[in-house]
């Protein structure tokens, strides 16, 4: 891969384990990703694949066992608490549940001004103006919203307010964790469009984490498919969706439901469910559900190999283009 623009956020060989009683949950096992300036990088996968943990470990909200996260030239794990608080302002996060993202006992004005108050960057009229602009940017009328509480707004509006708060400190990177999955379809489209607009306007780079394949495709330039703590395929988004090379990507795409009765494509229905990350399978982690698995898959862990420029896949028997 040869990034055309400089890399802004680089995750190298990230490993995150949680302890659950005496057992170890292998949440993320060796994930490397580069987010380039102005890029949107999608991470797609089913629940328990570790996509949310990648986002949290990037923010240093969960400790990583090994690997590094470097942002803007800083290795985040090596910073002191004080340095981290300051540096991390360059990355902001938006969450799945719009209601839980906003403190129910604070007015919208104070919620959006929170980072300004923490860092004492603006007071009085200047603070007010920044908050108003931030709300304006996300399509919320400040005159109506400022003195209200979160419960007076709909889910979509709360999500807009969350975005406004995240943008107040002018971050370079936005981590969006399932930000539209709790919203109605029509509202979901509003938020996705808003995100595209803000990205262009403020030169944001976005790490977009979601389970919905169509949503990820819509917003992302490049997409990583995760399964059980590992990345199994990584490619430009149109490339990945038209020529999936990993059997898991192929199955995931064919299981997706389209609002079109004629699109009932020949579907590969996976049997079973993802194995428990406490005891992941040997070799390739997908082999227990893979229709093409062979002995080698159990013995040897596949490493990512580039099958075409910018398209890499971690599979011993990738589905090559000639096949389809």
């Amino acid at each position: 891969m040869t990034p055309s623009t400089p890399t802004l956020l680089s995750i190298e060989n990230l490993v995150v384990n949680f302890s659950s009683g005496r057992k170890t949950v292998h949440a993320v096992s060796g994930v490397s990703l580069q987010l380039n300036e102005g890029d949107t990088l999608g991470i797609v996968g089913e629940s328990g694949c570790g996509k949310t943990t990648v986002g949290k470990a990037t923010m240093q909200l969960v400790p990583s066992r090994s690997g590094s996260v470097s942002f803007d030239g800083h290795d985040l794990a090596r910073l002191t608490r004080k340095e981290l608080r300051r540096t991390r302002l360059g990355i902001q996060m938006i969450f799945q549940d719009p209601i839980s993202s906003l403190n129910p006992r604070r007015k919208i004005r104070d919620i959006v001004a929170e980072p300004l108050d923490i860092w004492k960057t603006a007071e009085g009229a200047q603070r007010e103006q920044i908050v108003r602009d931030a709300l304006d940017n996300v399509g919320i009328d400040p005159d109506v919203a400022l003195d209200r509480y979160p419960h007076e707004f709909s889910g979509g509006q709360c999500q807009r307010i969350s975005i406004a708060r995240a943008l107040v400190m002018k971050p370079k990177v936005l981590i969006c964790d399932e930000i539209v999955s709790a919203l109605d379809v029509s509202v979901q489209a509003q938020i996705l469009n808003l995100l595209q607009d803000l990205k262009a306007r403020f030169g944001l780079s976005i790490l977009f984490i979601a389970h919905d394949l169509a949503v990820v495709k819509n917003v992302s330039d490049r997409v990583a498919v995760m399964y059980l703590g590992r990345i199994c395929e990584f490619a430009g988004s149109d490339e990945l969706y038209s020529h999936p090379a990993h059997p898991y990507s192929e199955a995931l795409l064919s299981a997706a439901l389209e609002p079109d009765p004629s699109s009932d494509r020949s579907r590969i229905i996976l049997t079973g469910e993802p194995p428990n990350p406490i005891d992941p399978p040997s070799g390739c982690r997908f082999r227990t559900r893979c229709p093409y698995a062979q002995d080698r898959c159990a013995e040897e862990e596949p490493v990512a190999q580039e099958i075409s420029p910018g398209h890499s896949v971690a599979c011993h028997f990738p589905l090559l283009r000639t096949n389809s």
């Binding site: 909200l61 608080r85 302002l89 990355i91 549940d97 993202s101 403190n103 929170e114 923490i118 708060r165």
Partner: peptide, 22 residues
């Protein structure tokens, strides 16, 4: 464990601020 607490943390709020204000 709510997200607004995480949000405050990522914005650099101190523990004291999170406990008293959030």
């Amino acid at each position: 464990t709510r997200d607004f607490v995480v949000a405050a943390k990522t914005q650099g709020a101190s523990d004291w601020r999170i406990i008293t204000k959030e």
